[in-house]
Design a protein around this nucleic acid. Structure first.
Length: 273
DNA sequence: ATGCGGACCTGTTAGC
DNA sequence: TGCTAACAGGTCCGCA
């Protein structure tokens, strides 16, 4: 479900509601997520306040005085804040209850998400330590991307979706960014010119920013922490439009599999291969 | 080191 | 209508 914009939308929605709140209870209904949820999680976090909610890539980091919760929504996860008790739904796996009565509930049908606790610097955690730069920060630059792509014989789409290259660019926004930059998804990364890197970095930043502003993309069931959908779907140019005409030149958009992911592009607009 | 494929899951949809 | 296969927004791991 969530790419970086969706995770950021969740982070922004969550923050005002639970920042500064004390964790009064932890409920684990299903511990079999991507990694097992520690049954003794409450020993570590009960009574602690949420000092900050930040994001690294698609990982949400809940900073406590002692330690950090690392929360990933996987492909189908969602976090909702409830102001009053509601019957738990199917796949409501974990919840935190706060001093003010608010409930933070994690639902994840596919269980690709995870919830981990660490007392060390979370950025040095093995899941986070090898991540590339944040796309919206300055260190994700044309120069960086150009350097990083030298001698990389991988399809460009695979390259920009690799979290070691840059975090947060998932299947939707990779397709959209490549279309916006008029770059062929199958082009070898090493063939990128510096000018192409400049354009690509620019469009990735612009598209992610715009999607965040729109509240993310709701394809099917993405909702933010208030349960509201995102509105970026109306803006999608290629994702999910295989076989339909390109909005720019009317050519039929091509859809094929690339590294097991559906990949859509315009064979006319995205020429350089 | 790099590139590729498989694995982890459930729910929904397309196709016969 | 009903069964089966394919597919879905992510990413880690292991093999060549």
């Amino acid at each position: 479900m969530p790419e970086l914009p969706e995770v950021e939308v969740v982070r922004q929605g969550l923050s005002p509601q639970i920042l500064g709140q004390k964790i009064a209870a932890v409920l684990i209904r299903e511990q079999r997520l991507r990694f097992p949820v520690t049954p003794e999680l409450h020993h570590f976090i009960l009574g602690q306040k949420i000092l900050e909610i930040s994001r690294r890539g698609k990982y949400l980091l809940f900073t406590l005085k002692k330690g950090t919760l690392i929360w990933h929504l996987g492909m189908s996860g969602s976090l909702r804040v409830l102001s009053k008790e509601k019957l738990p739904q199917k796949h409501d796996h974990v919840e935190l209850r706060f001093g003010n009565g608010m409930i933070l509930r994690f639902n994840d049908p596919r269980r690709f998400g995870c919830l981990l606790f660490t007392e060390e610097d979370p950025l040095r955690h093995r899941l986070l330590s090898h991540l590339g730069p944040e796309p919206l920060l300055q260190d994700f630059s044309a120069n960086y991307l150009w350097q990083k792509s030298r001698k990389r014989k991988v399809a460009l789409k695979v390259f920009i979706m690799d979290s070691k290259t840059v975090v947060g660019v998932g299947n939707i926004y990779a397709a959209e960014a490549l279309f916006a930059a008029k770059l062929h998804p199958l082009m070898m990364a090493e063939k990128l010119s510096l000018e192409q890197c400049q354009l690509l970095v620019k469009v990735i930043k612009a598209i992610l920013r715009r999607a965040i502003k729109q509240g993310g993309t709701t394809l099917k069931d993405f909702v933010n922490s208030d349960g509201k959908p995102g509105y970026f779907k109306q803006k999608l140019q290629v994702y999910g439009r295989g076989g339909q005409p390109c909005f720019s030149c009317q050519t039929e958009l091509i859809e094929k599999k690339l590294a097991q992911r559906a990949t859509v592009y315009c064979p006319t607009c995205q020429k350089n291969k």
